[in-house]
Design a protein around this nucleic acid. Structure first.
Length: 606
RNA sequence: GCCCUGGUAGUGUAGUGGCCUAUCAUGAAGCCCUGUCGAGGCUUCGACUCGGAUUCGAAUUCCGGCCAGGGCGCCA
């Protein structure tokens, strides 16, 4: 018996056909005479019927019904039969195959299933098992329509990307998984070398150096569906291993790269949804994004913008603001309009948000409510009527509006404000679910400078092309992030192609020449052989798909994800290996059962 | 490393000190049933994450561990 159709395929036009379906028994309903099986595969569900009043010639009804009785839930079975129209009035409009059913003539149990640990049918809300149970039995979870659909969408997405990249003359090139460990950045996953005991490869955090060397090697348009590895604690949008659409182009400027990505997103959109997407995407500068939305990946689907009040309140006799502004800090406000927000937040809620604000790293939270045409609050007595009026003007405050004011050092205050803005929008249900707001975050600084130590860190990474002299007070970087609905989807930049400039940037972030030579000497050397001007970007596939599908976590779009502690509940990795394997690698572990590494370091402590 | 939330039959849940030999649903096993579609009816089976403490008495309170999730740090 060979499968002739999938379980999602048969329609009225197939009535009368002899078919063979193979799939899994999702539900079965035996009425004591007539009996049904919902046969499922990843394409859909088809109803199989055994009808005592319609036994086709040559069918052994007895043995058939015995076989059907052995079909436990989720068993793999094969069914032969004839497609027929369902009895009048028993169509199932919810199911695309719901007008027909297969009148069974023969059946075979291909592989019996144990009783599944949870139910795989399309469930009503709230009956899904905990995620750890789903992950322990991920192969069963994958049979569920919702999960299967996510995995299918991901496949189509990747296919569309390849289609577009090929059309645009990109070469798909694989870069090494076993590579050199580089300093800075995330922690590496390391792999011991047997041939060279005591040495290690690192799994790539990204193919950054390799793709740049591909440009030097004349592969002027490269892309890869690249698996990347980072040994850092996970989050709902961060896994130890994840996938990026990694690309790099030579002889381009920033706009060339952005155009290419916009074209890619448009192509994918058309392919997935059959719709056009509006390009170019909006551009917003880093400074403006921070000062308006309190985020370097702002969610533009809702308002709640910050407005600077630093100048407005600089002369107010309110000591807290005075002190902050004198120290170079900022004051900014957010207007919660009466109709959508202000009137829904009571005095107790305000206190709750003041508590929240502290969790977000804000020193505090000042509030004012517009009442009888005036701003009113517990602190208005510290402000002159003129200044209160100026605040009201600047914030566009109208009757019933609630103002939240934040104050403090520029970065931490806007960041905290951004977290507060997000919380407010979620609490007040101001986030449209089906909207997709892409944007380019541009005009980023080259370095992040610690305000206390003055230490420079690369804002993106040290391969970004600086836009002006490294000794200038402010150095911009030719980098840009693609954001979607408050998430960073990808980060791109023009790269340094001048070896001396590359060296200088490394020095600027605190590396000495010896370290630079040891870690990046080979790369700087490569830049010295006519490296072309180049740049590129990497897009996070897992994040992209999970946002498109409205999933809360990227685990929903990864076939076999790891849990929060980087453990695969399915195969139990990571796990110890045999001592013989360690011996071969000349590795001893300090992690011994029942012994704490800390105790070894401090044997005298109790 | 830190903070927060949760952990009750296979699965989802109710239960905030005695009324718990723990609720309901689903499941599994068995029986009945000729048009269901998460079929239905009847019967049966099956659980308080672990350790310690408080108490006459703990699923329930407290402490610690383990497990899962969310967040901070971290993620150039």
């Amino acid at each position: 018996m060979r499968r002739t159709n999938t379980c999602g395929e048969l329609r009225s036009k197939d009535i009368g056909k002899k078919v063979c379906l193979q799939g899994w028994v999702r539900f079965s309903r035996d009425h004591g005479g007539v009996a049904f099986i919902d046969l499922a595969d990843r394409y859909g569900i088809t109803q199989i019927v055994f009808d005592p009043e319609d036994i086709p010639d040559g069918t052994d009804a007895n043995s058939l019904s015995n076989t059907m009785r052995s079909f436990t839930r989720e068993s793999a079975v094969s069914v032969n039969g004839i497609v027929r129209k369902r009895v009048e009035g028993t169509d199932d409009a919810r199911n695309p195959t719901g007008e027909v059913e297969v009148l069974i003539t023969a059946a075979e149990l291909l592989n019996k299933s144990r009783s599944p640990p949870f139910e795989l049918g399309d469930q009503k809300e709230g009956v899904l098992p905990n995620e750890d149970t789903r992950m322990r039995y991920r192969y069963l979870d994958l049979r569920r329509t919702e999960v299967a659909h996510a995995i299918e969408t991901r496949s189509r997405f990747i296919h569309l990307v390849r289609q577009y990249m090929e059309k645009n003359s990109f070469l798909e090139i694989e870069t090494p998984i076993l590579a050199r460990s580089t300093p800075e950045g995330a922690r590496d996953y390391i792999v011991p070398s047997r041939i060279h005991p005591g040495t290690f490869y690192a799994l790539p955090q990204s193919p950054q150096l390799f793709k740049q060397m591909l440009m030097i090697g004349s592969m002027d348009r490269y892309y890869q569906v690249a698996r990347c590895f980072r040994d850092e604690d996970s989050r709902k949008d961060r896994q130890p291993e994840f996938t990026q659409i990694d690309m790099e182009m030579s002889f381009v400027d920033e706009k060339d790269i952005q155009d290419m990505i916009e074209g890619l997103v448009a192509h994918v959109w058309k392919g997935l949804y059959g719709k056009e997407i509006k390009t170019p995407f909006m551009r917003i500068g880093y400074k403006e994004a921070m000062e308006t939305y309190g985020s370097d990946k702002p969610d533009l689907r809702y308002g709640l913008k910050f407005i600077s009040l630093t100048d407005t309140v600089k002369d107010a006799p309110y000591e807290i603001f005075q002190r902050i502004i004198k120290a170079g800090g900022i004051v900014a406000g957010i207007n919660l309009k009466a109709d959508t927000a202000g009137e829904r937040i009571g005095r107790n809620d305000v206190d709750r948000y003041i508590g929240q604000a502290k969790k977000f790293g804000l020193g505090g939270l000042t509030w004012m409510r517009c009442k009888d045409g005036k701003l009113d609050s517990n602190i208005t007595k510290y402000f002159t009527p003129e200044i209160l009026d100026a605040i009201k003007q600047k914030m566009g405050a109208e009757e019933g509006d609630l103002l939240f004011l934040i104050a403090g050092p520029w970065k931490s205050t806007y960041e905290g404000g951004g977290a507060l803005r997000k919380k407010l929008a979620e609490d007040l249900d101001l986030v449209p679910k089906d909207e997709m707001q892409f944007l380019w975050l541009v005009d980023c600084p080259m370095f992040e400078i610690d305000p206390v130590s003055g230490k420079h860190d690369a804002f993106h990474h040290p391969f970004v092309l600086p836009e002006n002299d490294l000794n200038d007070k402010y150095v911009g970087g030719a980098c840009f992030d693609l954001c979607l609905n408050g998430n960073e989807l990808g980060s791109g930049s023009l790269r340094i192609h001048n070896p001396e400039l590359q060296r200088e940037v490394f020095r600027k972030i605190g590396m000495d020449d010896e370290k630079i030579e040891a870690d990046f000497g080979f790369f700087i050397e490569a830049l010295g052989y006519g490296a072309p001007p180049h740049g590129g970007i990497a897009l996070g596939v897992d994040r992209f798909i999970s946002i498109l599908l409205g999933k809360d976590t990227i685990r929903e779009v990864i076939a076999f994800p790891k849990n929060k502690k980087a453990v695969s509940l399915l195969d139990g990795s990571p796990e110890k290996v045999d001592d013989s394997k360690l011996e071969e690698l000349q590795i001893m572990t300090l992690a011994i059962d029942g012994m704490n590494f800390e105790d070894l370091e401090n044997p005298d402590e109790e």
